[in-house]
Measured scan of single mutants.
Amino acid sequence: HTVDVQGVTYHFDNPEEARKFAEEMAKRLGLQVHVKDGRYKVE
């Protein structure tokens, strides 16, 4: 499970961890979480 944050890619084994990380980063950076091709993108 992959999370892209402003061009940096993070990998997680656990989909729940990936989702939480994406939401946390989006909140911290004031950005949105998009799901695209099964990847989380924070932009």
Rank of each mutant, 00 (worst) to 15 (best):
H1Q: 10
H1E: 06
H1A: 14
H1M: 12
H1K: 10
H1G: 13
H1T: 14
T2V: 15
T2H: 14
T2M: 15
T2G: 08
T2F: 15
T2P: 15
V3K: 00
V3D: 00
V3M: 01
D4F: 08
D4S: 07
D4M: 07
D4P: 01
D4T: 08
V5K: 01
V5Y: 04
V5A: 06
V5P: 00
Q6R: 08
Q6I: 14
Q6D: 08
Q6T: 11
Q6P: 04
G7F: 05
G7D: 08
G7P: 01
G7T: 05
G7R: 05
V8K: 13
V8I: 12
V8Q: 12
V8A: 12
T9K: 07
T9S: 13
T9I: 15
Y10R: 04
Y10E: 02
Y10G: 01
Y10I: 05
H11D: 11
H11K: 11
H11N: 12
H11Q: 13
F12G: 00
F12K: 02
F12E: 00
F12P: 00
D13M: 11
D13Q: 11
N14L: 12
N14T: 14
N14P: 02
N14H: 13
P15E: 14
P15A: 13
P15Y: 05
P15Q: 15
P15K: 13
P15G: 14
E16D: 13
E16W: 10
E16V: 11
E16C: 04
E16I: 12
E16H: 11
E17G: 09
E17I: 09
E17K: 11
E17A: 13
E17L: 11
A18C: 05
A18E: 00
A18L: 02
A18G: 05
R19G: 07
R19Y: 09
R19W: 10
R19F: 10
R19S: 07
K20N: 13
K20W: 11
K20P: 03
F21Y: 08
F21H: 04
F21R: 02
A22W: 00
A22D: 00
A22H: 00
A22Y: 00
A22S: 04
E23Q: 09
E23K: 06
E23L: 09
E23R: 06
E23I: 12
E23G: 07
E23N: 10
E24R: 09
E24S: 10
E24V: 09
E24M: 13
E24H: 11
M25G: 03
M25F: 06
M25R: 05
M25K: 06
M25T: 13
M25V: 09
M25I: 11
M25A: 11
A26P: 00
A26D: 00
A26H: 01
A26M: 02
A26R: 01
A26E: 01
A26Y: 01
A26L: 01
K27E: 14
K27G: 08
K27M: 12
R28W: 08
R28H: 09
R28A: 13
R28F: 09
L29D: 03
L29R: 02
L29E: 03
L29S: 03
L29F: 07
G30H: 07
G30K: 05
L31M: 14
L31D: 02
L31N: 02
L31C: 05
L31V: 06
L31I: 04
L31H: 04
L31P: 00
Q32P: 06
Q32C: 07
Q32I: 13
Q32V: 15
Q32E: 10
Q32M: 10
Q32T: 14
V33S: 03
V33I: 07
H34W: 09
H34R: 09
H34N: 10
H34G: 05
H34P: 01
H34K: 13
V35Q: 07
V35K: 06
V35L: 14
K36D: 14
K36G: 06
K36N: 11
K36I: 15
K36E: 15
K36Y: 09
D37R: 03
D37F: 04
D37Y: 04
D37G: 06
G38V: 02
G38W: 03
G38E: 05
G38F: 03
G38Y: 03
R39F: 13
R39M: 15
R39V: 15
R39E: 15
R39G: 15
R39D: 15
R39Q: 15
R39S: 15
Y40A: 01
Y40P: 04
Y40I: 06
Y40E: 02
K41G: 05
K41M: 15
V42F: 04
V42I: 07
V42L: 12
E43P: 03
E43M: 07
E43H: 07
E43D: 13
E43R: 05
